[in-house]
Amino acid sequence: MAHTQLEHELAELLVDALNLEETTPESIAPEAPLFGDGLGLDSIDALELALAISRKYGFQLRADDTRNQEIFANLRALAAHIEANRADP
């Protein structure tokens, strides 16, 4: 499935911020899991990603444990969360 513009931007940010050398932004499916079996990100990656997102979109990620899993479930969910919270709409 094709990326929206924000999803593509975010995929680039992800590859860039986390140094996913063997991954191209285009190859990150919008609904594939980012953590665990998907891209295999971990909690330190989540911290790095949160920092990159706060710099680019001007808001701090927040999550209690359950919402954390929702927001970081996949690229699409993360993009939707950013769309709803970004400081520069």
């Binding site: 911290l47 949160a50 701090q60 927040r62 999550a63």
Partner: peptide
């Protein structure tokens, strides 16, 4: 009780 991950969660 919580074990916060993101800085903003920790701050709050």
């Amino acid at each position: 009780a919580g074990c916060p991950l993101f800085p903003e969660d920790l701050r709050s």
